[in-house]
C-alpha cells in the first residue's frame, strides 16, 4: 500500500465498499436513476420545518440506512467522514450529534464524495479504523439560499447554470471482502483558469478534472481503455465536451468511456438547465447506480472524478475567479470466492 506516482494512493490491503445507501429528493426521484435510490422524498421540505432540517434528515437517513443494510449498529462504526455545502458543514455536524459517531469533517464542495471516500479508504487500509462511513449531502434550496438567491426570487438563470441536486449518499468502507473494491485514489490540486461566472461552474471545473484524471492515468501507468467508465461529478453539458477536447489535445481520448453524474441523474426534459450539481450528485450516482452496475458485472473498473468549485458568494462579489478541485477514486469489481 502507499503512494504511487505523484498524487495517487494504492490500497493494497484490500479495501472494500460493503454497503451504500442513497436518498433523493422529488426531482431526482423523477429522473432516470429513481430505481437506484434507497429512499426518495416527494416533498422538498422532507416534511421538516425548514430547508436545513430537510437536508440534515436526508444525510442522517442515508447514513442510518447504510449501517442497517450492513447489519451493524451505529456504535459499531469507528469513524464517519462527511461534508456538505453549507457554511461550517452544519448538515454533517448536526447529523453527527444525533449519530454519535466520531467524525472527520471534510470540505471539497462537490468533490467531497470522493474526498471522503479516499481518506476513509486510506484510514481503513492503514488500520487506524476497522470501518468508516464516507457520506455527503446537498439540497437544492439550502444551496440556492446560501450561494445564489432566495428560492422564490425571480432571477432568470442562463442555460449554462446547473441544478443542485437534493440527496445524500453514504458508503461503508472496511477490509471485509465484498464485490466492490476500492483500488486507488488520486488527490487533486486546486486549479484556477480564471473563470468567474458562478452560473457556469461546469467550464470552471474542467481544468481540475483534466489535471486529476491525467495525473491518475500517468501515476497508474494506464490509459482510458483500462476503464469501463470515467465519470466526472458535475461538469454538466457545458464542461463535458470541453474536458474531452482538452484531454484530446494532450493525446488522451476519453470519448468512449466518459460520462458525467450531473447528466446521468436527470432526464433531458427536466427543467435543470445544464445538468445536476452539488456534493450529493456524484455520491448518489456512484453509490446507487454505479455500485449496482459493478455488482451486476456490467462495469468492471470505474474511475470517479468528483469535481468541486471552491468559490463563495463573497469571493464572487470581490471579483475573484473560481478555483476548482477534483478527487478521483477507482472502484473495481471483485469476484468473491
Amino acid at each position: 500500500m502507499g503512494k504511487l506516482g505523484k498524487q495517487t494512493w494504492i490500497f493494497e490491503n484490500q479495501v472494500y465498499i460493503n454497503e451504500t445507501a442513497t436518498v433523493a429528493g422529488p426531482m431526482e426521484a423523477q429522473g432516470p436513476l429513481s430505481e437506484t435510490f434507497d429512499i426518495t422524498f416527494d416533498d422538498l421540505h422532507c416534511h421538516e420545518d425548514n430547508w436545513e432540517k430537510a437536508e440534515r434528515k436526508i444525510l442522517q437517513q442515508s447514513i442510518q440506512t447504510c449501517i442497517q443494510k450492513a447489519r451493524l449498529q451505529t456504535d459499531q462504526i469507528d469513524l464517519m467522514l462527511s461534508g456538505d455545502l453549507l457554511n461550517q458543514n452544519v448538515t454533517s455536524n448536526y447529523a453527527a450529534r444525533t449519530l454519535s459517531i466520531p467524525i472527520l469533517n471534510m470540505f471539497g464542495a462537490c468533490s467531497t464524495s470522493m474526498e471522503t471516500l479516499a481518506v476513509a479508504s486510506a484510514l481503513v487500509d492503514a488500520g487506524f479504523v476497522n470501518n468508516a462511513i464516507a457520506a455527503t449531502s446537498s439540497h437544492n434550496a439550502t444551496a440556492e439560499r446560501q450561494f445564489r438567491y432566495p428560492t422564490e426570487y425571480g432571477g432568470q438563470k442562463p442555460a449554462t447554470a446547473t441544478t443542485t441536486i437534493t440527496g445524500g449518499g453514504s458508503a461503508l468502507v472496511s477490509q471485509k471482502p465484498s464485490t466492490i473494491r476500492v483500488e486507488a485514489a488520486t488527490i487533486g490540486k486546486v486549479m484556477d483558469y480564471q473563470m468567474g461566472d458562478p452560473f457556469d461552474m461546469g467550464s470552471a471545473m474542467v481544468p481540475a478534472a483534466y489535471d486529476t484524471i491525467k495525473t491518475h492515468l500517468a501515476d497508474m501507468g494506464r490509459s482510458p481503455d483500462d476503464y469501463d467508465l470515467i465519470v466526472t461529478g458535475d461538469l454538466s453539458s457545458i464542461g463535458s465536451p470541453i474536458l474531452k477536447d482538452m484531454m484530446k489535445e494532450d493525446g488522451i481520448n476519453i470519448d468512449d468511456v466518459h460520462n458525467d453524474c450531473g447528466l446521468m441523474i436527470y432526464n433531458s426534459d427536466q427543467p435543470v438547465f445544464a445538468g445536476g450539481s452539488g456534493t450529493a450528485c456524484s455520491a448518489v450516482v456512484t453509490y446507487g447506480h454505479i455500485v449496482s452496475e459493478l455488482r451486476k458485472g456490467r462495469l468492471n473498473r470505474v474511475l470517479i472524478a468528483a469535481t468541486g468549485s471552491l468559490h463563495s458568494p463573497t469571493m464572487i462579489q470581490q471579483k475573484e475567479t473560481m478555483p476548482s478541485i477534483a478527487h478521483g477514486v477507482v472502484l473495481t469489481r471483485e469476484e468473491l470466492s
Binding site: 442562463p158 442555460a159 449554462t160 483558469y193 480564471q194 473563470m195 457556469d200 467550464s203 474542467v206 481544468p207 483534466y210 457545458i238 465536451p241 470541453i242 477536447d245 482538452m246 489535445e249
Partner: peptide, 20 residues
C-alpha cells in the same frame, strides 16, 4: 501555446457556452 492552456482557456471555452 495550446488552445486549452491557462492563458487561452477562457477564450477557447466561449465557443462551448451556448449564447442566450
Amino acid at each position: 501555446s495550446k488552445k486549452f492552456d491557462k492563458q487561452n482557456y477562457k477564450n477557447t471555452v466561449k465557443s462551448y457556452q451556448p449564447k442566450p
